[in-house]
Design a protein around this nucleic acid. Structure first.
Lengths: 209, 209
DNA sequence: TTGCTTACCAGACAAATGTGTGCTATGCAA
DNA sequence: TTGCATAGCACACATTTGTCTGGTAAGCAA
């Protein structure tokens, strides 16, 4: 008999194994789990799987081959592609087509709704750790809180700045002492969205389109 | 016998059915195809499936249940999860499991091979735009080029620094004037991998585990 | 006609796979 | 000790599932 492992440890690995296989598109059979973990009996694998079902981490379709699935809530993050906009044109950006340069994958279909991506061009945000060439993922919204990093429309160009409130009005502040804050006329500030993620690829990044 | 349909028409619909099922995560069995299309014989479904394989639209793993897959090139862009390692222990990090804190989704299965992720803890790389709390995605490799940002092992702790060559030896340089370079004994430098991506989530990020 | 192809059916067999019963061994707590 | 839980094993059985052999019927071209 194989040595006994600490309680739950093997089961965690089995859970990840099943999830991995689901990612690849083909759920494992009980015997595939058995072989993957070197169990000498099918039943050992089966008991672990059934325990995972009882724990609510897996679900199963009884009788079906390869019937184990991830439980609700643990579902695989389905990938979605967010458009990488190049030139952000005048107006509202809401006009359907802005000639995306490509598409950025995000791990949640839901989160991708109403998102777009931009490539940062200036050095005005380097103290916030946002460098030229970085990608910012932006959720579209026309308002934001002071302190948020936002994408705003300044003279028909999209710019990334931190939103600040000063003297009762909203301003766009760079995070680089070499740059000056932008003080829009009251009511003239057009916010395109809020930056919710920053990505920097130091090595070749696959482009989707 | 059911009425005979025009050549290829039923087969196209079977292809779409299989693709749909693959997208949902559970490839169909031959008999499930049979029932979905109301065939009175298993063999009818089987012949269509085998024809799709012969046409190069599907592939199959013979003998396996639910063994039909989409052919190369027709596959969906698949995501993979990269382990987010918390404490990087001594030694080589190559020991199988290091108690991942979670898993980070990356958009390519292939790229995920041999990768891991770390959460940055210090402020030593802020001038490179790497802030505390940022995630770095690392490809495992034991050597790197000067100029690369690497993860190296310093006194049993993983640290992110830029690799530099000075006076003929490799050093680990921070990107923050408040910190000093680390000068390992020649030959004592343990490189765990190269940083290939930096991510910062400014808003709640889903954690997978 | 003949011959060929495609679409479909019937029934059987064998391999893959899910499931059940009974067992050993270890650790822990009452 | 007893009792209980977890980890694992052996073996059998039934269902699911892939596979095979042989058939019918319709359309089309030589």
């Amino acid at each position: 008999m194989s040595p006994k492992t600490p309680p739950g440890q093997t089961r965690d690995q089995i859970f990840r194994f099943v999830r991995e296989r689901l990612f690849e598109g083909l759920p494992p059979t009980v015997r595939e789990v058995q072989q993957a973990f070197g169990f000498k009996s099918v039943q050992t694998a089966r008991e672990h799987l059934e325990t995972l079902v009882a724990e609510g981490r897996l679900t199963k379709a009884a009788g079906l081959s390869r019937g184990y699935r991830l439980a609700e809530g643990l579902a695989l993050p389905a990938m979605a592609l967010v458009p990488l906009l190049g030139q952000v044109q005048a107006g509202e950006l809401t006009t359907a087509v802005e000639e995306p340069e490509g598409y950025i994958p995000v791990p949640s279909r839901q989160a991708a709704e109403g998102m777009f991506a931009l490539r940062v061009r200036g050095r005005s945000m380097i103290d916030a750790g946002i460098l030229p060439g970085d990608l910012v993922l932006v959720r579209r919204q026309s308002a934001a809180e002071p302190g948020d990093i936002v994408v705003a429309l300044v003279e028909d160009e999209a710019t990334v700045k931190r939103l600040r409130r000063r003297n009762g009005r909203l301003e766009l502040h760079p995070e680089n002492p070499e740059f000056f804050p932008i003080v829009p006329e009251p009511g003239a500030l057009v916010i395109l969205g809020k930056v919710i993620e920053v990505r920097r690829h130091l090595e070749g990044m696959p482009v989707y389109d």
